[in-house]
C-alpha cells in the first residue's frame, strides 16, 4: 500500500486538511454535480417545451423511472463495493418469467395469485446469491461471474417461455403497476418504498456501512474484523431481491413476459448508477445518488421524446454519459493499474 506522500500539513491539529477554497469548491461541486445537472436539464426542457412541466408528463416520467430506479438501487450496493453486476437482465428475465408462468396466464393453467410475484422475488434473490457465491467461492472477478449468470438466468427464462410471449391474465397482479394511488401509478409508490428501504439499509445498518467500508478499502475492512466474503454474498443477494421486485413490476406493467423484456436494462442501470455519482472504484455515492442518476436518464429520455429526437439517439447519449461521468469522477494517477 502506498502511503499518500507525506503532505506536510500547514494547518494545525484538528483543522481541516490544508486545502484552498478552490479544491474545496471543486470537491463540493463534484458532490452536487449530478443534482445540478438534473436541475439544468429540467429547466432547459421546461423552456424548450412547456409540455414537460404538465402534471401528466411528470407522472409519465415518474412511471417510466420506477423500474429503472429499483434495478439501479440493487446495482448501487454492488458498485459501492467496487464490484459490478452484469446479470441484471438475466435475473430480471427469470423474475418476469416466473410471474407470468405462475400467475393466471395464457400459456398454462397455473393461477397461484400472490404466490407468483413472491416466488419471483425469491428466485431472483436466490440467483443473486448464486452470483455472490460463485464470485466469492470460486474467487473470480464479479464481472465474469455475473456475465455467466446473466446468460444462465436468461436461458432459464427463455427455455421456460419457449420463445413466445406469455400474457399475465391476473388483474390484481397487473394492478401492482397500473393501479393509481393519489394520481400516481402504484409502481411509482413501490419504487419510492424500495428507495426508502434501501436508503435505510445503506445508512443505518451494519451491512450497509460494511458495503461502503469494503468499497473504501477491502484490506482495511478485513483488518477491522468485517466478514468481507459474507457481506459480498449478502450484497449480491440484496441486488437480486431488488431486480426481482423490478421484474414483478415489469411483468405487471407490460402484462406479459417475453424474451426481450429485460433487453437494455443493464446498460440503463449502469448508466444511472454511474451518472448519479457512485464511483466504480467503490466506497463513494449511494442510493440517493442513484435516484438522481435515474432521474437524469429518465428526464433526458422523456425530453428527447418531447423534442422529437429518435429514441435510438438516446442509447448513444447514454453511452457517452457513462464515459463522461466516469471520466469526471476518476482521479487520474498512476497509482494502480486499471484492467
Amino acid at each position: 500500500m502506498t502511503r499518500p506522500t507525506a503532505q506536510v500539513s500547514a494547518a494545525g491539529r484538528g483543522a481541516a486538511a490544508p486545502e484552498g477554497v478552490w479544491p474545496w469548491l471543486r470537491r463540493r461541486a463534484a458532490d452536487w454535480a449530478p443534482a445540478v445537472v438534473l436541475l439544468g436539464i429540467c429547466v432547459a426542457l421546461a423552456v424548450l417545451n412547456p409540455a414537460f412541466m404538465e402534471p401528466r408528463n411528470l407522472v409519465r416520467v415518474a412511471n417510466s423511472a420506477a423500474i429503472p430506479l429499483i434495478l439501479a438501487i440493487g446495482a448501487t450496493f454492488i458498485i459501492a463495493m467496487g464490484s459490478i453486476d452484469l446479470s441484471v437482465e438475466g435475473v430480471m428475465s427469470l423474475g418476469t418469467m416466473i410471474v407470468a408462468m405462475l400467475a393466471a396466464n395464457d400459456a398454462n393453467a397455473n393461477d397461484f395469485g400472490w404466490w407468483a410475484p413472491l416466488l419471483a422475488v425469491l428466485a431472483a434473490s436466490a440467483l443473486g446469491a448464486v452470483n455472490g457465491v460463485v464470485h466469492v467461492g470460486l474467487r473470480i472477478p464479479s464481472f465474469m461471474a455475473t456475465l455467466g449468470i446473466w446468460f444462465v438466468g436468461r436461458g432459464i427464462a427463455n427455455t421456460a417461455l419457449g420463445g413466445s410471449a406469455v400474457r399475465v391474465m391476473d388483474p390484481s397482479i397487473r394492478d401492482l403497476a397500473l393501479h393509481r394511488m393519489f394520481g400516481m401509478p402504484f409502481a411509482v409508490w413501490i419504487a419510492i418504498a424500495c428507495f426508502l428501504c434501501a436508503l435505510g439499509v445503506e445508512r443505518l445498518t451494519r451491512f450497509g456501512r460494511y458495503v461502503f467500508a469494503i468499497g473504501g478499502g477491502e484490506d482495511i475492512a478485513e483488518l477491522s474484523g468485517i466478514a468481507v466474503r459474507r457481506v459480498r454474498v449478502m450484497a449480491f443477494t440484496l441486488a437480486g431481491f431488488f431486480y426481482g421486485i423490478a421484474a414483478v413490476l415489469a411483468a405487471a406493467q407490460l402484462g406479459q413476459s417475453n424474451a426481450v423484456i429485460a433487453d437494455g436494462r443493464l446498460f440503463m442501470t449502469v448508466t444511472a448508477v454511474v451518472v448519479g455519482g457512485t464511483a466504480l472504484t467503490g466506497g463513494e455515492g449511494g442510493v440517493l445518488n442513484t435516484l438522481i442518476g435515474v432521474l437524469i436518464v429518465g428526464v433526458l429520455a422523456n425530453g428527447m421524446v418531447l423534442l422529437g429526437v429518435s429514441p435510438y439517439v438516446h442509447q448513444a447519449v447514454q453511452g457517452l454519459m457513462i464515459i463522461g461521468a466516469v471520466a469526471l469522477s476518476t482521479r487520474r494517477s498512476r497509482l494502480q493499474f486499471v484492467k
Binding site: A316, G319, I323, V326, V338
Partner: peptide, 25 residues
C-alpha cells in the same frame, strides 16, 4: 479505457451502447 482509467468492461459497455444506438439510428 486507458486515458480516463475506466475499467475496460465499463468503457466497452459504454462504447457498445453508443455503437448499438448508431446502428439502430
Amino acid at each position: 479505457h486507458v486515458r480516463f482509467r475506466i475499467p475496460s468492461f465499463v468503457a466497452t459497455l459504454a462504447t457498445g451502447g453508443v455503437v448499438a444506438g448508431l446502428a439502430l439510428l
